[in-house]
Every structure is written in structure tokens, then in C-alpha cells.
Design a protein around this nucleic acid. Sequence first.
DNA 1: TTGAAAGCGCTAACAG
DNA 2: CTGTTAGCGCTTTCAA
Lengths: 335, 335
Amino acid sequence: MPSKNTPVSIAAVAMHAGVSVATVSRVMNGLDGVRPVTRDKVLASVTALGYRMNHLARNLRTAASRLLLTMVPDVGNPFYSEIVRGIDSVAREHGYFVMLCDTGADEGRESAYFDLLRTHRADGAICLDPDTVQHALANESNVLPWVACCEFDPAIAVPYVGVDNYRAAGDAVRHLIERGHTRIGLINSDQRYRYARERQRGYLDAMRAAGLPIHPEWRQLVESLDYDAGKHAALQMMAQPEAPSAIFAVSDTLAIGALSAMRQLNKRVPEEVAVIGFDDIAIAAQTWPPLSTIAQPMRLLGETAAKLLLLRLADPEAKVQGVLLDHHLIQRESS
Amino acid sequence: MPSKNTPVSIAAVAMHAGVSVATVSRVMNGLDGVRPVTRDKVLASVTALGYRMNHLARNLRTAASRLLLTMVPDVGNPFYSEIVRGIDSVAREHGYFVMLCDTGADEGRESAYFDLLRTHRADGAICLDPDTVQHALANESNVLPWVACCEFDPAIAVPYVGVDNYRAAGDAVRHLIERGHTRIGLINSDQRYRYARERQRGYLDAMRAAGLPIHPEWRQLVESLDYDAGKHAALQMMAQPEAPSAIFAVSDTLAIGALSAMRQLNKRVPEEVAVIGFDDIAIAAQTWPPLSTIAQPMRLLGETAAKLLLLRLADPEAKVQGVLLDHHLIQRESS
DNA sequence: TTGAAAGCGCTAACAG
DNA sequence: CTGTTAGCGCTTTCAA
């Protein structure tokens, strides 16, 4: 079976089978209205010639690529990869391929990727970038099919899925308070993210509601979500004269960095300082001590985002709603 | 500026500018042989109408999608995500988008993704799947442009990039031996991966070369590379009457799981049992104790793979070689 | 320097 | 049930 250099076209199959291209097309697309005998004849030619449809041509006709774009700020972050898995599974289930793009939360790069949508190389997009960069896409939201995942601004008319970050952060802080802490620090991330702003609001309000003191020095802002960033922030925070006895980090990666800082400082966790994270990524259960955290349903978040997008694709008119998923506290040994 | 529902085509621009579609095409592609006046006229119409080229149509003509496929066994594995970053950066530099696909190391899924190549929806592919599943693609290697990364079989005629797993594993074991260990265990992964088989060979030969005893019970095979798998394997290994005093895990994630197991067993690391991993993912420096490991140049691995593919795309005839990159030992506190 | 026209491989009316 | 035919939006000779 010589692998032909010239890819065989639908016309070649039609000729070989002694039918018209239309019939071949019908068979390839599983449309009915084709006599079994004819179908078999076509199928035989297909295998005989090793025919494979050129999707490019089909897409041009149908104006659909069956490709879904997923834009994430950082593919390396385990939080995002779990979400991506969720997206991928429902996309594949519906015959779509997903194209994963790492934007680095950069507006320019995101816009470049978004061009894939504008130029019909992708049918729809799921955006996990900061809501501040999402705003740039908001104008086109009515004409271009995209949905927001995790990050979203309810004010812009785009379907979204996420969690109630304000309440979740409050839950984390209230948990710390219940454990007897009064000096609670916050390691927060890039304020371009709405989740960061919301969680900070949750932290602040929970502290106030409990009548606890709020020290600006107990709040550290970091730019990236990697372990080192969390470590440095924690080190910084503990270097102060009156340091917190508990730390709430808005991401597990940051919290794990904080754990590492405590080790370096010879502070026992949770006896001397308690730590709680956010997300519940796989490694949170493996750290020392195992990390308490606010779990987000990552997989489901991704699946839901994909479903919302598919809905929007199926019916561009349908006004699809935003949806909030439940979080929950997982207490392990770090708090 | 009303966002038109009907996407404007090249014909619309031509009409608006009072030129032919051919001229518009020339301008869009930056070909010369167009009078500046004409060019400006066209450009003006382009912005006036908000024209964006339909790449689908262009691709059909040029038979190129500017899309590169990257097939990884598990997007959630931090080792792979760093490689993906490398691939992405050089691809983008050359005007390609990369489409990241999670195959789960499943032959069926990989084949489905590979269809994107066969049906012209992607120009080339980079495969990180087990060499055993790569074999299925080997027949088409001469006609379909793809390269292997990390996993590769030198026997099949496909460009590849990776490290010398045999020697690297030997280095890890020799390091443990130098630290005075004689009872060394191996946590190895799925034997469908050539790297797993090579590292095992490296382990075995290094042990033999040092005249050390080899106990089959000191070898644990796991199916997945997640933390839990490493933990269970380590637990299993330590449950034996004569347990190892050192463990070499073929992946950092596995090694981190082993660290977690030692904690549960109240074994001090490295005093009672030493642990060394492989890869040097970001979190390896943050564990307790910080993990010794064999570092792979992950980023460079990805960049090189992309470059090899680009080379193959530019000149399908050129016989591009396989390349091996250097690894190195990083000793931290777990050994 | 520009335009006319022929496809790229496929789908979808519309006929028969 | 099957075939004819007209495009999808673009690139690319070939002529003018």
C-alpha cells in the first residue's frame, strides 16, 4: 500500500466508485437517502484509496472549524490544567478539538489569539484571563462567541462560570478566626484579577465583622502565582515586628510557598502560624503539613464553561446566564 | 461603527476600493508590484470596512494552516507544561499557533488528534507520547511531518530531542551510592515509556557496576505519575522486611509522593531514607526537605522540538537528526 | 502595475 | 435515491 503523495480528494473517490461527489459527501457525512449498495461501494473506494476528508475545505463551506479556543494565563499552573481537562472532555464529547493558548495574562497576546476567532479558525473561545483584559473583548461579545471562566465581570454581557470568591474568602478567614486567630495576614495576587479583588474584599469584611484589627502590613501583593512568590511574600510578612499568626493565601501555590517560608523561619505550622490556601490542587494534600484550603470544583468549572460555549454556539440568540458553583472548606493540618 | 453581522470578504474590500480582488490579496500579503497609491486606497478600505482575512479560505488555497499540534500524555503534569511553554515560544516567533492536545497516552486519542494532520488542519506535530504508541505513527512518518520530544525511538526515522535517560539514571544512583547507600529502591513508571525502561536499565547497571545487591522487591512500578502513585509505591516498598535506605524515583512528582510517605511512616529524610527525583520541576525546591533531582532542560527540550519541526516543514527532504540534551544532578536536602 | 479567471475540496440546493 | 451545479473566500497564473 504505497502512501500516495497526492492526497486523494472526494472527486477521486467519486470517480473510483462510479458515483457523484455529492453521493460521496452524503456517505461521508452519514446522511441518509443513500442505498446501502451505493454506500458500500463508496466506502470500499474510500478505503481502497485511503481517502481522508480535507476538513479545511469542508470548514470553508460550512464556515465552522470545530475548534474551540481556550485562553489561560498560565498553562503551567496546576489549577488551570485541571480546568482545561474539564473543558477538553466535554469538547471532545461534542466533536470539537480544543486549542489551548497560554496568554501570560498579556492583553496583546490574548488579542492575537482572539484573532483566530475573528478569522474563522476557531468557532468559539473560553477565556480565563483577568477580567481587566476581558474588557477589551467585551465590545465584540455580541458578535463573537466566547464565554468567561473563573474570571468574569457580571457587568459585561458574556456567559460565565465561577465561584463566589467573596464568600469563599470570608469562609477561609472565618475558619481561621474560629481556630482562635486574631492576627490574620493575606497573601493576595495580581489585582488585575477580579478574583483577587473579591477575595480581598471577603477577607476585609470578615475581619471587620469579627471586630478584628486590620493592618495594611499584613497584606502582601504578589505578581505571579508561583511558589517562590508565595515564599517571599510570607517571609516579608513575618519579618514585621508584630507578625500575623495565620495566613490566608489566595492560591494553593502561594500557600505552599508560605509553608516553605515557615520552614526556613523555623516556625511550626499550625502551632505558631496557621496557613490556608485556595483551590485544592492535587499537591495540596501532599505538602507538609497537608494544606487546608478552599476547594473549587475545577473539573466542573471547565466542563460548565465548555457547555455554556456549546450552548451559545448552538443558538447565538439564546441569552445564556452566568453560573456560580459551590466551593467548600477542606481542613487538613496546616490550620 | 456598527459591527457587521456579515463578515466582509476580500471582494467587498475590492469593490469598496475600486480595485480587483487580486490587488487586495497582494496588499494583504505584502507582495510588491502594487503602486503606493493603490496600496493606500486598499488599506483605507480595509480599515473602513473592518476587514479581516478568512484564514480558512486562505489555508484551503495554500494548503497550510499555520497550526502546530502538540500531543502530550498529561497537560496537568508540570514537567510537560514547561516543555509546552518552550514549544509555544518558538512557534509563536515563527508565526505558528500551537494546539495542545491531551492524549492521556491513549493510542486511540492520539490517532484521533493525528487526524488533524492527515486532514490538513495542522501543518505539523510534536509528540510526547510513549514510544510504544509512537510506533503506530511511524509508517506515516515519511509523509506526515512530525517530531518526537522526550520520548523517542532512535530506530524509527523521526527527528527527536531528549536526554540520555540511561546515563542520567546512572548518575542518580551513583550519587546515592557515593552518599553511602547500598540498599537502593526504584520507583519507576509505566513501562510503555522508553524513558522508564532506559532509566531502569541505568539503575540496574549502576547497581551492578558497584557490586550492589539487586532486589526485585525494591522496584515498584506505577501507572500514573501523580503524587499519590508515588506515595503508595513508597509505602509498599518500605513495608518490606529489609527496606531500602534510599529511593530513586523516575519523576519528581513520584518522589514528592515518596516524601509524603516517609512523613507518614515517621522516617526522617535523608537520615533514615534518602530520596532523589527526576526532572527538576518548580516545586522540587519547595518540598520538605527540598528534593534532590536530575534536572532536564525542559524549556530547551520544547524549543528544540519546535525548531526541528519547523526545519522539517521548511524542507521536507532534509534529513534532520535526533539531538540529545544535557542533564545534571541537583543536590538539595533529600539525599 | 493591475485585472480576469481558474481553481483549492467540499457542501447544499435543486433537478431528475 | 442520485447527479449537476453553484459557490465558500482566497491565491495565483496569465494577459492586458
